[in-house]
Amino acid sequence: MRVGVVTFPGTCDDRDARRAVELCGGVAVTLWHGSNDLDDVDGVFLPGGFSYGDHLRCGALARFSPVMGAISAFAAAGGPVLGVCNGFQVLCEAGLLPGVLRANHHGRFNCLEADLVVERASAWTGAFSAGDTIRVPLKHGEGAWYASDDDLRELEAAGQVLLRYADDVNGATGRVAGVCNAEGNVFGLMPHPEHAVEALIGSTDGRAIVSGVLSGG
């Protein structure tokens, strides 16, 4: 499976994302923000960083780049798309995922290993099932996912909340860490599964999530 990893100006986790894709058995393909050619990839990984300097709002300007037009069409056709951290922010701003990311409630940057509770089994959580706790690092200043209480209830009822923080690390509505679209082929989360793919550095729990983009979402 060929997975396109997008590089925007200011992306910094694209190299880790490509390496994680390869470790999980895929072929990583570099996609450039200025091109609308997805190079016939089977899946797309939007990695973390600070696209366009986080100017205006995180992810707000990246959504208008040429590659995002192609990714929107790819997602609409059912192609698997994974967004991590800034990639999650871009997908929310683009309207491909519900909600929006805003500043952490405590006003500080988070850099920690987070325990995440799996809400339900899905293609994005591999062999993990509901109630399992996985450990994945995170690093963000604007990581608090926000949706109105009514919207959150609808998303929960539809099974779109896939991961929650075990502890309230950033003030996210409903402690939501990761959410998918109604069809289930687009998934985004603030924690970094691509940083949790080798036992040497503490956790391999991220492999299940990275593998989701290989298995078709």
């Binding site: 805003r102 952490n104 409630h105 006003g107 608090a144 003030g171």
Partner: peptide
């Protein structure tokens, strides 16, 4: 009603 951490810091 939306939390504003920046305003709170100021």
């Amino acid at each position: 009603g939306i939390l504003d951490p920046q305003g709170g810091s100021i």
